[in-house]
Computed example of a mutant assay.
Amino acid sequence: MRAAIYWAPRIDDPLHRLGSQWLGRDTETGATLAQPTLPGLDIAEITRDARGYGLHATVKPPFRIATSWAALREDAMALALRTRPFALPPLQVAEHHGFLALLETERSPELQAFADACVAGLDAHRVPPTETEIARRRPERLTERQRENLHRWGYHYVFEDWWFHVTLSRRLNDAEMEVVRPAVTAFLGEAPSLPRRVTELCLFTQAGPGAPFLLAERLPLLG
């Protein structure tokens, strides 16, 4: 089993319903959802990888548990208890390294601090990556800092190299981008830009390799 710390929209947030429909799966219930259609493209294929991970933004990347689920949950709950809720900047559909994703319209120091605290504060529960897993990240193509992050924290995009993003597609070519970007922008409507606060730390789990991620528990921020 793997665990991950994610941000996910609250269950009553319109973005939860619309984003889950776009990806074709609700991580809260595990239910398969009917997706909208794309002219000339297979939306199920376009969103396949993102659907497996579910509607989310990564806070602490997926990891195998070195301790126990109970111990991880206890420390995650303690972190949530000392973290105050904070405003999330409005989101927008944008191109991100060839993918489509929801990105912040402005950087949030509170969000960065939250992600940093989750990465470092819960790291005792992470099994270090194997040499094969490290090699899969192509460390020769990373910066020196990213290589250090990969070996120390199990992932290269953490701390200064982390960014908030909610993945909505696989990597797209120019022709696909011309179809998918306006389609997802129209489908989500004003939901991404609505005012919202980060009020929960979301624990996700993956039962085994290739299994879909599910939202195991929402821990309220009570600091």
Rank of each mutant, 00 (worst) to 15 (best):
R2S: 04
A3T: 00
I5S: 11
Y6N: 10
Y6T: 03
A8Q: 13
A8F: 08
D12S: 11
D13H: 09
D13M: 04
L18W: 08
L18K: 14
G19I: 05
S20C: 12
L23V: 03
L23W: 06
D26A: 11
D26P: 03
E28T: 03
E28R: 12
T29N: 06
T29H: 09
A31T: 00
A31S: 05
A34T: 07
L41V: 02
L41K: 09
E45A: 15
I46S: 09
G52P: 04
L55W: 09
A57F: 09
P61I: 02
P62D: 04
A70P: 04
L72C: 07
L72D: 02
E74R: 12
D75C: 03
D75N: 10
A76L: 11
A78S: 10
L79F: 10
T83M: 13
F86Q: 08
L88Y: 04
L88C: 14
L91A: 13
Q92S: 15
Q92G: 15
V93S: 14
V93I: 10
E95C: 10
H96W: 13
A101H: 13
A101N: 12
E104L: 15
R107H: 15
L111D: 09
A113I: 05
A113C: 11
G121P: 14
D123L: 07
R126Q: 06
R126E: 06
E131Q: 15
E133N: 06
P139Q: 06
L142C: 07
E144F: 03
R145Q: 10
R147I: 02
E148C: 09
N149I: 02
N149M: 08
W153P: 14
G154L: 07
F159C: 05
W162S: 07
W163N: 12
R170K: 15
R171W: 07
N173K: 05
D174Y: 02
A175M: 06
A175S: 13
E176D: 11
M177V: 00
M177H: 13
V180S: 12
R181C: 08
R181M: 14
R181L: 13
P182Q: 05
T185Q: 14
R197C: 12
R197T: 09
T199R: 15
E200C: 10
T205Q: 06
T205N: 02
A207M: 01
A207H: 02
G208A: 13
G210R: 07
A211W: 01
A211K: 12
A211T: 00
P212M: 02
P212L: 01
F213T: 00
F213I: 01
L215M: 09
E217Q: 12
L219D: 03
P220M: 04
L222Y: 00
L222F: 01
